[in-house]
Design a binder for these strands. Structure first.
Length: 553
RNA sequence: GGCGACGUAGCUCAGCUGGUGAGAGCGCCCGACUCAUAAUCGGGAGGUCGACAGUUCGAAUCUGUCCGUCGCUACCA
């Protein structure tokens, strides 16, 4: 477990404001980041959790063109949708912004200019397709043609959606512009390139020295290095994006989205600092030797966070490289990769319509694809909520509070004379908190949640063994001691659930007091305990499947 | 095609720096209990750890080949 007061940057993948995000995104990045951040705060560390909507990039302009609106309208629409989702899920951002801010452009320009000055960025000329009718260069996605592999007539310049193969636009048979339908011509264009190859050696040894990283993350990243790093263009012929801070290239060029999106972590930290009224406050997380930075992303984002962003950071100089990138694998829905565009799985909004937020958070946290792709379904979410969360934890809270209310004069009893078994139960709970802390700190969030559930099951077993409902008739004093012990145990177990279940945890705080650190809080004897309402509502399967078309998702 | 990950009980997964009898949750069966959201607790059945070959005294764990699934393949980010 980390020493107290460590600055921890919780950097979370920037959701792409080109459409609704789905439960795979939630389980891949936002939920694990939130659990980790909530834990670290309780553990006494200084957490800065940042992200924002990525509002640039081709899919947004493609969608805007298709709908006949501006890219900004698309970005605004989904940015608002994301904000609403975060609020309903209680994702505890310190700063959630977007890449559309002036601050972000300024930070991007600072990094760009420094890298340019230090020679890590240079200019090169390349040939690219041009639509003379529309008077603009065409990104690969804006070129359509016949796939040379399968003959599909609507293949895109980057990929054929029919056979799934990756394409180069010049491979297309009968290429045409998606904008005007005109046959594109080849023109030379000048762009800035990031000299990634300059960092091949230093990044290689940096990766070799990483410890505790997930195997697939490390292997994948090293694989990139071994294949040889290629310099990458970081500007595009676009009119939607962050402006290029030098005018050498002339108009119609923008910084390409992948280069500026990762800079968002830094610009969001700076934006947060400005809002705090101390514009230098971000430095603790980015420059401190003791600071940690943990990046929560899906596996498709690995090279950007283990290769490209570290290259940019080390080229810039003086800023901390990622401490860990615990990228998740994919959440699959009945075997298929979740994809909002292909209609596989549930969007976050759909998930929130079907389930209460804590239930959804629990089910996803218990299924996080930490080591391998994990398959989930609506039925599985229901099972997790009803058979695990409610049966073991919700019911435990309810049975203990109900008995304390009924058998202890509706108040927290005095500890009294506890037996060895009594003190052992509470000691086991305290030990579980230590284990869970260690697991969460290592970003083993499924395991930590299991630790919490096992602790809850231990309290259930204690109750079955001691049978306080019988003692209440035969030995009321002993019954009060047992129930006080069980209440103390519940009081400890809830701490382990707090990062995962913010809503029900807050409800429980109303009853037995606040959780303000990663330890079992003191209970105040005499504190009144009313008749408790259930912490969670059971999911009614009949009702769920009776919804609209009978298909829950 | 290349690269990476994965393939372990009915389901979802852990274990994989090689070594006491292969695990967990849920489901299923039996029993206990009835305070509690028909919840809980105990016990049990159930797997030749994808296939084949190899290394080793010993492999789910290492190596090779094959089969299958998923992802990436640098203009999605």
């Amino acid at each position: 477990m980390a020493e107290p007061q460590v600055p921890i940057l919780v950097a979370v993948a920037w959701p792409y404001a080109s459409g609704s995000r789905h439960l795979g995104h939630l389980a891949g990045a936002y939920l694990p980041a939130d659990v980790f951040a909530r834990f670290q705060r309780l553990a006494g560390n200084r957490v800065l959790m940042v992200s924002g909507s990525d509002v640039h990039g081709t899919p947004i302009t493609v969608r805007a063109d298709a709908e006949g609106v501006t890219p900004a309208e698309i970005a605004d629409r989904y940015h608002a949708e994301f904000l609403d989702a975060w609020e309903r899920l209680a994702i505890s951002w310190d700063c959630y912004t977007s890449t559309g801010t002036e601050n972000h452009a300024a930070v991007t320009h600072d990094i760009f200019l420094r890298l340019l000055e230090k020679g890590y960025i240079d200019r090169r000329t390349s040939d690219q397709f041009y639509d003379a009718e529309a008077d603009r260069f065409l990104p690969d996605r804006y070129i359509e043609g016949t796939c040379p592999h399968c003959g599909y007539a609507e293949a895109r310049g980057d990929q054929c959606e029919d056979c799934g193969r990756t394409l180069d636009p010049e491979e297309l048979v009968d290429p045409r512009s998606k904008i005007t339908g005109a046959e594109p011509e080849v023109r030379s264009t000048e762009h800035f390139y990031l000299r990634l190859s300059d960092f091949e050696e230093s990044l290689g040894s940096w990766l070799d020295s990483r410890e505790g990283w997930r195997r697939h993350v490390l292997n994948f990243s090293k694989g990139w290095i071994e294949e040889g790093l290629q310099d990458r263009a970081i500007t595009r012929d676009l009119d939607w994006g962050v402006a290029v801070p030098v005018d050498d290239l002339g108009p119609g060029k923008r910084i390409y989205v992948w280069f500026e999106a990762v800079i968002g972590y830094l610009s969001a930290a700076k934006e947060w600092a400005q809002r705090q009224g101390d514009s230098e406050a971000w430095r603790d997380w980015w420059e401190g030797d003791d600071a940690r930075s943990v990046y929560f992303i899906g596996k498709d984002n690995i090279p950007f966070h283990t290769i490209i962003w570290p290259a940019m950071l080390s080229g810039y100089g003086g800023l901390n490289l990622p401490t860990d990138v615990p990228a998740n694998q994919y959440l699959t829905f009945k075997g298929g990769k979740a994809s909002a565009s292909r209609g596989v799985g549930l969007t976050i909004g759909e998930g929130l319509r079907l389930f209460e937020p804590d239930g959804l958070r629990y089910a996803l946290a218990a299924s996080l694809p930490e080591q391998s792709d994990t398959d989930i379904s609506v039925e599985e979410i229901v099972r997790r909520i009803n058979e695990e969360l409610i049966a073991t934890w919700g019911n435990l809270v309810n049975r203990v509070l109900s008995m304390v209310h009924a058998r202890c004069d509706g108040a927290v009893p005095e500890p009294g004379d506890r037996t060895d078994a009594d003190t052992e139960l509470v000691a086991d709970v305290d030990a579980a908190l230590v284990s869970a802390a260690d697991q969460i700190d290592r970003v083993e969030l499924r395991a930590a949640l299991r630790t919490a559930m096992e602790a809850a099951a231990g309290v259930n077993a204690y109750l079955n063994a001691t049978e306080p409902w019988k003692l209440a008739e035969t030995d009321p004093d002993r019954a009060r001691v047992v129930l006080g012990t069980a209440l103390d145990a519940v009081n400890g177990v809830r701490v382990a659930f707090t990062p995962y279940l913010p809503f029900s945890s807050a409800a429980l705080e109303e009853v037995i007091g606040p959780v303000d650190a990663w330890r079992r809080p003191e209970l105040s004897p005499g504190m009144p305990i009313g008749k408790p309402p259930p912490l969670f509502a059971k999911v009614d399967v009949e009702e769920l499947f009776a919804d609209d078309d009978g298909e829950p998702g």
